[in-house]
Computed example of a mutant assay.
Amino acid sequence: MARQTDARIRTIATAERLFRIQGYTATGLTQILEESGAPKGSFYFHFPRGKAQLAEEVIDRYIAARVAVLHDISAHTAGNALHFVQRLFDTFATEMVASDFQYGCLMQNLANELPALDSELTRRVAHGFVVSTEIIATHFVGCGFAPARANESAAAVVAALEGARTIARLERTPAVFTALAAISIHGWATTAAT
């Protein structure tokens, strides 16, 4: 039983890595099995609906990890919107550098392929963005933002983070994260001062 569990975990982790690097459509089941070392029979035991079911579990795992990171950053910057935004951009930049600029956002990669995805995968990806935005908006409300401003600011931050990942992958530098954090912080500081 332990081997099956190990094979399942390895398969999910391998699929997440490949989906983040090359996307869903470009990642074949054969590549996932070869790189994870999981036997084909074990794969269909754990994922009887095949690659789509695997992708559902990968998305759920990725969203859970992202939510945990956002909550952690929020907890360590309670009441401070500027520090919160700086930590968000720093954290995402650090992850990009650690992956040698290979890892995109799983949700963004899959969202770019929405016509090729089934409705359940599309729903899960959309849910991931909604949850991320809600966590950021909730933090902003805790910093004194009006709900409408918190929601708008959160949506802008999520969009900026996703765009920054794309640019950082192309340019192979985290400079865009620094630039966006500075612009965001300057804009909010200026607004608060007026």
Score class of each variant (00 low, 15 high):
S42D: 06
C105Q: 10
S74Y: 04
K51H: 11
L70G: 01
V176D: 11
I185C: 05
S42A: 07
T91L: 00
R66Y: 03
L33D: 01
R165T: 00
E134W: 11
T14K: 15
D100M: 02
V158L: 13
R66P: 00
H71T: 03
F89I: 02
T138V: 00
K40P: 08
H139D: 02
R8N: 08
Q53N: 07
H76Y: 04
L88P: 10
L70H: 02
E16N: 00
A150D: 15
V158T: 12
R49S: 03
F177K: 07
G37N: 08
Q53P: 01
S74N: 03
T166R: 01
L110K: 03
N112A: 11
G41F: 04
L110T: 03
A155I: 01
D100L: 04
I21K: 00
L18W: 12
D100A: 07
R124F: 03
A148F: 00
A15Y: 02
T14V: 14
S119M: 11
D90K: 05
T14F: 15
P174V: 01
H46I: 07
G28E: 11
Y24N: 05
S184N: 12
E162N: 09
F89L: 06
L82S: 12
T166G: 12
A137E: 13
G23R: 08
L29Y: 09
M1Q: 10
A148K: 07
A179S: 14
H71F: 00
T11Y: 01
Y62T: 13
G50R: 05
I59E: 00
L117N: 04
R17G: 14
A111K: 06
Q86C: 05
V158Q: 11
G142H: 09
C143R: 09
S119C: 07
T94D: 15
V157M: 03
A193Y: 08
E171L: 10
A52M: 15
F45K: 06
L170H: 10
A75C: 10
V58I: 02
H186C: 13
A159C: 09
H76R: 09
L161D: 01
Q31P: 02
A146D: 09
D90E: 15
S36W: 13
A78R: 11
L82V: 09
T178E: 11
P115D: 08
T122V: 14
R17L: 13
Y62I: 02
P174C: 07
